[in-house]
């Protein structure tokens, strides 16, 4: 690991000051950042420990909830309000990592989890995300875990997390404080970026920004599911995952909110699919149309071709289960 300066911030103002002055990175749980620093994929000159900021609570916020950025994944998934009113979020969090990691990983830090692309981790390989301008060894390489939607000629990496996929389905908002102390609210759906020609930027955070929380809107009820398909039964990243919040009233789908993991550089959300489902009676034919629309611009990369039929089948299974049908 490269040497770095370590500082503890005791307030938000101090955190901004330290981040801007030293060009440092904030560290909370550190489960991803320290892993990458050991491999020298990340080489920050300074780490600003933000764990002492007062951001560790879940409190009521309007009709919804404000989850402090330092709330651990474990604490979030164990909270009775999350489990009872936002079960898709609890399920998604519990689908990711292990109890050990979730005890350390935080709400803010988990949003910033970086890709698990093998070429991003391997310093001997070309990677535009790690070192802009060097190329992408995943394109034409072994790309089983890579994107089928929204990728670019510069990068086909996927966002690996589960929590943010559920937050996207719930239409949550990320609360960010910038270096001037100004607060801005960014919908989770707009927080992560598509790679385009700047894949080194995973999300919209600017230097000096600190995520201070995530705001959940009023509970929407309905049937909430998170289905994750992966290589092992536990402790593995999603090949495909689907977060679904569905309401069926009088035999028709009154509301459909869907987000997908494992498909793109960000949790994938396609409002066209939701619009197609809403107002219609659930049927296999309808679910086929939804899957076809979701995947109409899907592009396989060689090793990940299986993700297209896998996504279609997983979406259909989730829609059947959520609308009361059989698997």
């Amino acid at each position: 690991m490269k040497p770095f300066e370590y500082q503890q911030a005791h307030g938000l103002g101090e955190a901004h000051q330290l981040l801007v002055a030293d060009g440092g990175k904030p560290i909370a749980g550190g489960t991803n950042l320290l892993d990458l620093m050991k491999l020298e994929v990340e080489t920050p000159s300074a780490l600003v420990d933000v764990n002492r900021l007062p951001l560790g609570g879940i409190v009521e916020h309007g009709e919804g909830l404000h989850i402090g950025a330092l709330v651990s994944n474990s604490a979030c998934a164990a909270d009775p309000r999350i489990r009872g009113q936002y079960p898709v979020l609890a399920r998604a969090i519990l689908a990711g990592a292990t109890f050990q990691l979730r005890n350390k990983a935080t709400t803010g830090g988990n949003l910033c989890q970086r890709t698990r692309c093998y070429y991003f981790y391997d310093l001997s390989q070309a990677c535009n995300k790690r070192e802009p301008g060097t190329g992408c060894a995943a394109i034409g390489g072994f790309n089983r875990i890579h994107a089928i939607l929204g990728a670019s000629d510069a990068c086909i990496a996927t966002y690996p997390g589960d929590m943010a996929v559920a937050l996207s389905a719930l239409d949550a908002t990320v609360e960010i404080h910038d270096a001037k102390g100004e607060k801005r609210m960014v919908p989770v759906r707009e927080f992560h970026r598509l790679p385009g020609d700047t894949p080194e930027r995973d999300n919209v955070l600017e230097a000096g920004d600190v995520i201070t929380g995530v705001v959940l809107p009023a509970p929407s009820g309905g049937t909430q599911l998170y289905r994750k398909v992966r290589d092992r039964a536990s402790y593995a990243f999603a090949l495909v995952s689907v977060a679904a919040v569905l309401q069926v009233e009088d035999g028709v789908i009154a509301k459909a909110r869907l987000a997908f993991g494992g498909l793109a550089h960000k949790p994938w959300h396609d409002p066209r699919v939701e619009a197609l489902l809403e107002g219609e009676a659930p049927s296999d034919a309808l679910f086929d149309q939804a899957a076809a629309l979701l995947l109409d611009e899907a592009r396989e990369q060689g090793s990940n071709d299986f993700k297209i039929p896998l996504t279609r089948r997983t979406l259909k299974a989730v829609l059947r289960e959520a609308t009361g049908g059989t698997l």
């Binding site: 550190g30 489960t31 420990d49 474990s74 050990q100 005890n103 350390k104």
Partner: peptide, 19 residues
């Protein structure tokens, strides 16, 4: 490397002592 930190299990390899 699992240990208990304030009673909760964590991976002690993925955190810094100074924290």
């Amino acid at each position: 490397c699992t240990v208990l930190l304030n009673g909760q299990r964590i991976n002690s390899c993925l955190t810094l002592a100074v924290m």
